[in-house]
Design a protein around this nucleic acid. Structure first.
Length: 421
RNA sequence: GUGGGCGUGGCCAAGUGGUUAAGGCGCCAGGUUGUGGCCCUGGAGAUCGAGGGUUCAAUUCCCUUCGCCCACCCCA
């Protein structure tokens, strides 16, 4: 039997209310903040991600779904949204629009070839926002605020917002150097992963979860202490702005992010239960990215969060949502002569705006009633020989049990004032 | 890629080295003529993940494999 591929899931009807809620919330909020919806392809030329996300990152190095298409071009299922949105910004000349260009996506499928576990799948979905074309810290502040409001809006509580600045091209090299100098003598005492990190990506030394490495990370040089003047000013304005709008952020000097393109601002939102896969969403500024993609130097800042993780946490926090409303009426019928009229009646009622289902064929009336009961239909309309002969239909209200005959032509209008209930 | 746990009908789930592998939910049908929800009765549905081995005999023991879950790595 065929099954969903590893790391993928079916989003079944019972779960759809969560998705709809998250999507509706995201859409409303983004548009309230002046963002406009964009959808980009779920696959792009492989080079786009190599150039943007970074060749040496895990995401690109070992997690991409890549394939050559029939013409031999290398394509990659997108592992994140920013690269594609920036590509679209360039491709469509959005630099002529008023800057920054604010764009959002909702439930955009992403793909990473990871080993699945709680809150981690190979196909997952992002809510994503990007504000491209404005270096000002007020835009960073806006994106952080939008992210924060979004989580509150979907019903999540007790979240943590962590914030940091990792500098830019001017000051990052100096910071990395300081970091290396600090860690060099410590390398022998580090865990195996950190030994590797020391060489591959020293920034990551900071967020090692190992007990033995924690003290080193805590005492490590802080990027905030190594910011150049411009980055410092940007950071100061950002924090001041967040204070103004009363966002309860926590500065975490060990916050770094996994994609190479971030500059200055980085932030994450974490759920209350610390542990694996705790990141609900994250983002930051990427002032060098567009240039990497062969555009004119253009600043940008964005945020992405995982819909699956949001829903996981909504469930953990007991957020409940109403299921899709059951069908209002079932049309049942007895005898072959009634089938046509029943089908016609169901059609007419639907045309009148009522949600209606025709009972399955070949069942006794009893079975059809059970069917209607199982669907939680409010009404059953029964069509039989008598009704066909008289041009009527028997209307039964399931809740109270009372029923009466009404002319078929009046069925819709008879129900209309009541189906609101 | 590394480590750990688990795999019994659609779902949940008991169970034993040996006749027809419990039960619950769900599904289907019936409980007299064209009527639901409760209740009652009956029914369908499992080669006990797969392959191999041990044994007179394995769902139950061993090996392998696949799958799922959890954790690491990394990230959403």
């Amino acid at each position: 039997m065929f099954k969903t591929p590893r790391g993928t899931v079916d989003i079944l009807p019972d779960d759809q209310p969560y998705w709809r809620h998250v999507e509706a919330q995201a859409t409303e909020l983004c548009e309230r903040f002046g963002y406009r919806r964009i959808d980009t392809p779920i696959f792009e030329e492989s080079g786009l991600f190599v150039r943007s996300v970074g060749e040496a990152t895990d995401v690109v190095e070992k997690e991409t779904y890549s394939f050559s298409d029939r013409s031999g071009d290398s394509m990659t299922l997108r592992p994140e949204a920013t690269a594609g949105v920036c590509r679209a910004y360039l491709q469509h000349g959005m630099h002529v629009l008023p800057q920054p260009v604010r764009l959002y996506s909702v439930s955009a499928p992403m793909f990473r070839y990871d080993r699945p576990q709680a809150g981690r799948q190979r196909q997952f979905h992002h809510v994503n926002v990007e504000a491209i074309g404005d270096p000002d810290a007020s835009v960073d502040s806006e994106v952080v605020e939008l992210a924060w409001r979004f989580f509150a809006g979907v019903g999540l509580r007790n979240l943590t917002l962590v914030l940091n600045s990792i500098g830019d091209q001017a000051c990052r090299p100096g910071y990395l150097e300081a970091l290396r100098r600090y860690y060099e003598p410590l390398v022998p005492g580090l865990c195996a992963d950190c030994k590797r990190r020391f060489h591959e990506n020293p920034l990551r030394l900071l967020d090692c979860k190992k007990e033995s490495c924690q003290p080193h990370a805590r005492e490590a040089p802080r990027s905030l202490d190594h910011l150049c003047e411009a980055c410092r000013a940007h950071w100061d304005e950002l924090t001041a702005s967040l204070d103004l709008v009363a966002l309860p952020y926590t500065v975490d000097h060990r916050l770094v992010r996994g994609l190479d393109y971030y500059t200055r601002t980085v932030f994450e939102v974490l759920p209350p239960a610390e542990g694996a896969q705790s990141t609900l969403g994250g983002g930051g500024r990427y002032d060098g990215l567009i240039e990497q993609l062969e555009g004119r130097p253009t600043p940008g800042v964005g945020f992405a969060c995982g819909v699956e993780r949001i829903i996981l946490n909504m469930k953990r926090q007991g957020v409940t949502l109403a299921q899709q409303a059951p069908v209002k009426a079932v049309v049942a019928y007895v005898g072959g002569a009634a089938k046509g009229p029943a089908l016609k009646l169901a059609s007419d009622l639907r045309a009148a705006g009522l949600s209606v289902v025709l009972a399955p064929a070949g069942k006794s009336l009893k079975a059809q009633m059970r069917f209607a009961g199982a669907l939680q239909a409010s009404y059953v309309l029964i069509m039989g020989d008598d009704e066909v002969r008289d041009g009527t239909v028997t209307l039964k209200e399931m809740a109270g049990g009372e029923q009466r005959q009404v002319p078929v032509a009046d069925a819709a209008t008879t129900l209309e004032p009541r189906w609101v209930l």
